[in-house]
Design a protein around this nucleic acid. Structure first.
Lengths: 186, 186
DNA sequence: TATCTATTTAGATGCCCATCGAAGGAGATG
DNA sequence: CATCTCCTTCGATGGGCATCTAAATAGATA
């Protein structure tokens, strides 16, 4: 109903909107590649390559296999195909529009409590707080699992008190937790 | 054959990697929209909307029709479909890879003469030897200066006869030397 | 002509992020 | 154990870009 589904789309496009990452995908499509190999082929330092790999992993586009210390990364062709198929369909655009012209009240709440992406304060009223929490929950991709550290980072982008918000998300059953690992409900 | 092709891909993804532009596409998919209309629906100022429209026009995704002073923009559904179809195909990724590791032939040479990072033998043919030398040269950072001892170490990681290879690199003008100090050419 | 309105261009600002060096694991080897 | 190698994480920096205000353009109205 609420459609910040759009943030997921933006995230996917941003992940692909980088020459280094596209080159890495091309190289990993041929065969599995070590970080060092990508680093020398692309003339980038190791940390930079690791950063890009993390980003691509977040999209579910690559898989990793460890062989000794070496980490070998490979492109998941099926995932790429699925992404290409689903990325820009009319359905998606419709969802985007729903997001824009959706519930006026919810949009007003978000406008009131947010300064850009930054949550000015946590709403005291339960209903308003739930709007904010749903907006936060939409930043977690269904099906993915997040360690607590990453949950804190994602929430922390919008408000310093990530601990309170994280608990509230669990309480509202928008996120679920087991053994220190979090995922989006439903 | 070397591909600024990749810059086109990056540009397309970047144009789509923005929530405002995606929302605008969604709205323009329903019906044609004026700048003012988009502006109020998205809660953005006029100039910002114009900026985004220019970006989307650069992708060929929208068309404009003037009616008096008002400019009415509309999504070109066919263009969108074509973009979605062509954006992330294996062909494109192959082109990207060609951009990185050059001609397929060069990649084949490297595969033939290397066992992992170890050069099995120095190619006798001049063209093949040059491919290997360029690969070796890529392990020297442009702008840095290397004493001869370090040059030997770096080359020695890949082949025991570092002296021959070092001289070949100078001969091919891929490395330069002055007073016993080496650096990467260009 | 002057004026009003819709849009575009120019210039400035602030945030996001690609990249790097340094430091911190973690497996292998001896 | 110590050490080496490969990778990841952390913190900092610089460049690009979304957004804004102010000014310029252009059509409509009178």
């Amino acid at each position: 109903m609420t459609g910040p589904e759009i943030e997921l789309m933006v995230n996917a496009f941003k992940a692909l909107a980088d020459a280094s990452r596209l080159r890495m995908l091309g190289l990993m499509a041929e065969r599995e590649r070590s970080v060092e190999e990508l680093s020398s082929l692309l003339d980038l330092k190791g940390p930079t390559v690791s950063h890009h790999l993390a980003r691509l992993k977040g999209l579910g586009l690559i898989s990793m296999r460890a062989e000794g210390n070496t980490h070998l990364y490979r492109l998941d062709g099926d995932a790429l195909h699925a992404l290409n198929r689903d990325l820009l369909t009319p359905d998606k655009l419709a969802a985007v529009t729903a997001d824009v012209s959706g519930e006026a009240w919810e949009r007003k709440v978000l406008r009131d409590f947010f300064d850009g992406e930054r949550l000015k304060e946590i709403p005291a009223s339960r209903k308003k707080r739930e709007v904010v929490l749903r907006w936060l929950a939409s930043h977690f991709q269904p099906g993915l699992r997040y360690p607590e550290k990453e949950v804190n980072v994602i929430i922390g982008r919008h408000h310093p008190d990530f601990a309170t918000l994280r608990r509230e998300l669990i309480g509202a059953e928008l996120l679920r937790r087991e053994a220190g690992v979090y995922w989006r409900a439903e």
